[in-house]
């Protein structure tokens, strides 16, 4: 550790959208779970006011990002994020979460600079950082888009106002000048009955969907009730399979070697334990 030559910064995958209720949190939780089979992962909830990561995973989080903010105000750069993370475990899979504040006032006062500092620190600790956001172009979200390796721009096809907002979103991202490689348009098929065709949406947005998640509302909502991500509880559903395909697209061949490395570390999260000196 600390050897600059060997220092490597983890991959940052952000879930973003300009339409609401498109399944950002659900997909982020599943992706964190799936990647965590083979790599170290931290899931960060940046829906600061009304975040659902702790709800969906039924975490008993003692600390939140608000505690990091407070500590950083006192300690400055020497503040360590690790003690404020909450571990999620299911079977052999484990990953860490930095949850959103319990209090709206705390959330309101979190500075973008603090979050940037947190993500940078997490990048030196984890292979993957998964970020859940809110559906708007805020200062914080723009800063996160800048820091991300990959942005999943999530879409849904239900009714015209949603399509309009997605169009505004993709146009704005283009204007902001992000590499097309970086922004991945992912369609989450909802159960909404609609007569709007997917091809029409692709034409309006001026690009094809990079990946399409199948409609499995029942499986998705059951996983919210149970507090266990779908890929962990029932890996055989179509949605779980499709989520895994998406993970493969992002982790590519790298996953294999990491997997070996990980296996060598014996127990699934002893690596994390070592990192945090526990």
């Amino acid at each position: 550790m600390g050897d600059q030559d060997n220092a490597r910064n983890g991959v940052v995958i952000t879930f973003f959208s300009t339409a609401s209720a498109v399944g950002k949190t659900l997909i982020a939780c599943n992706m964190a779970s799936e990647i965590a089979r083979n790599a170290t992962v931290c899931l960060v909830d940046l829906d600061l006011q009304f975040g659902d990561v702790a709800n969906y995973l039924q975490l008993q989080d003692e600390y939140t990002i608000a505690d990091v903010e407070r500590d950083m105000n006192v300690q400055g750069d020497s503040c360590e994020v690790a003690p404020f993370l909450t571990l999620y475990e299911h079977g052999q899979v484990a990953f860490y979460c930095l949850t959103s504040p319990k209090d709206v006032a705390e959330a309101y006062n979190i500075k973008t600079k603090t979050v940037q500092q947190i993500i940078r620190q997490l990048q030196s600790m984890f292979d993957y950082i998964i970020i859940d956001t809110t559906s708007m172009f805020s200062e914080l979200n723009l800063a996160m888009l800048d820091m991300s390796t990959i942005v999943n721009f999530l879409g849904i096809v239900d009714f015209i106002p949603t399509i309009k907002n997605m169009k505004i979103g993709t146009d704005t991202l283009k204007r902001l000048g992000y590499d097309t490689q970086k922004i991945r348009l992912v369609l989450n098929r909802s159960d909404s009955k609609t007569n709007i065709g997917m091809d029409d949406v692709e034409r309006v947005l001026g690009q094809p969907f990079y990946h399409i998640l199948p409609n499995d509302f029942r499986a998705a909502s059951q996983s919210i009730q149970d507090g266990v991500p779908l890929v962990l509880s029932n890996g055989s559903t179509r949605l779980a399979a499709s989520l895994r395909e998406l993970v493969d697209l992002y982790t590519d061949g790298r996953m294999g070697s990491r997997h070996q490395e990980h296996q060598d570390a014996a127990a699934s999260h002893s690596l994390l334990g070592r990192l945090f000196g526990r």
């Binding site: 209720a21 009304f50 709800n55 909502s221």
Partner: peptide
């Protein structure tokens, strides 16, 4: 109401 944590969010907003 979408079957997730909507009521809790409404409560949090009302508290503020």
């Amino acid at each position: 109401l979408n079957g997730a944590y909507e009521i809790q969010h409404a409560q949090r907003a009302l508290e503020v």
